[in-house]
Design a protein around this nucleic acid. Structure first.
Lengths: 207, 207
DNA sequence: TTTACAACATACTAAATAGTATGTTAAGGT
DNA sequence: ACCTTAACATACTATTTAGTATGTTGTAAA
């Protein structure tokens, strides 16, 4: 007998199947939009069939909601907030992280924009359930940013008179704006223009 | 006989019909997205029928292209660039225009975001024809902004060492970012946070 | 006044789509 | 060993959709 890992070798597993569906759905929706993707498309990218899909998600909207709550919200946080904790100076971390994840991203990746922002633009005005969850994910991001800015303030990297919440809003807005512009222009040089301007803004905040 | 205005009282008019269709399509697409709207939906909002539609536009994509070229591109320019010409100081004009068109906009208007940005986010990665035209509209906007910034520089309102093209990119990005954030958060207070930060950035540019 | 065609209207079609109805089988409890 | 049910698979349906085929009529030129 082989040394089985922790995972039991079951051929049926609700959680695992859910993850597989969400994973496939994420890419399809990310690249083609929620309204541009059909359930059959998603199922095809899966090892399962339609029965499994509807066993997990009663409707297409429920899938969308789960995508925001279970995939995009935590993904955004772990991509943009968690890494900041490694930096003594969060302000420096924010800029470096942007350069890393946007400035050095491959064009084929950049052309699809930001998973969260995409859904905000497409679905927030169309469906109230979406809006509520997207709002929640955005606020979660902003609050994480705010915490890091408060830390920067405490450590003396940020002027004590600046409103951190306000700056957090602006920084998240800039993330979305960066993605949006690069998606529309697909001109690699545009990143430098945007980055330099953001840096200039940051310099006004330094203690 | 009545004093006929210039317009001939024709019951059939290719140009006029085109405008009516584009006008209806603009609102439907603006509020529900290009992929979320059907041709039958658009036709219903019109005084005409499907025959008229397909007489003007061979496919749905052709309608989308015309929307960008003939409606959204000039509309964006006349909303954001033309008014700047009324100001001695374009920098002042940009901020005032943002306050006017975004800060004081009704929430039901704001929730639908920016017509150009919406299409960029939704269609640029999905269709090459869309991407090309959206890119063109964005560049047109940026170049208009650049011209105004150069004028500001000439008139001594803007530091001579700043790269106007770079700033133009950032300002247009901020427009899109503002719309995107407000669309996602629908918190009226968020505008002030963003506006104050943008203002702070502008102050670093003053001569 | 007639005629030709552009500018529409009407009726239809094939494909796609979200969702349902009804199976089948793995697997844990007894 | 058997039984129950959760976790799927398969087959089907009603509706929507982009697009087409085929009319009808205003209108401008001859």
């Amino acid at each position: 007998m082989e040394k089985g890992k922790k995972a039991p070798k079951k051929t049926r597993n609700l959680e695992q199947s859910r993850k597989e569906i969400l994973d496939a759905a994420f890419w399809e929706v990310f690249t083609r939009g929620f309204q541009g993707v059909s359930i059959d498309d998603i199922v095809k990218k899966t090892s399962m069939t339609k029965g499994a899909f509807y066993h997990q998600f009663p409707t297409k909207l429920d899938l969308g909601y789960a995508l925001v709550d279970e995939v995009i919200k935590p993904m955004t946080y772990s991509r943009w907030i968690d890494p900041l904790k490694e930096y003594d100076n969060p302000l420096e971390g924010i800029l470096l992280q942007i350069k890393k994840l946007i400035g050095k991203a491959a064009p084929q990746e950049l052309r699809y924009g930001c998973p969260l922002n995409n859904l905000v633009q497409e679905m927030a005005p169309v469906d109230a359930g979406f809006k509520k969850r997207l709002q929640n994910a955005l606020t979660y991001w902003i609050e994480g940013m705010d915490k890091e800015l408060k830390r920067a303030q405490k450590e003396g990297f940020l002027r004590p008179d600046v409103n951190t919440r306000q700056v957090a809003h602006f920084v998240v807005m800039a993330h979305e704006g960066f993605y949006g512009m690069l998606k529309g222009l697909d001109d690699p040089k545009a990143f430098n223009a945007l980055y330099d301007s953001l840096k200039r803004y940051f310099e006004t905040l330094r203690a």
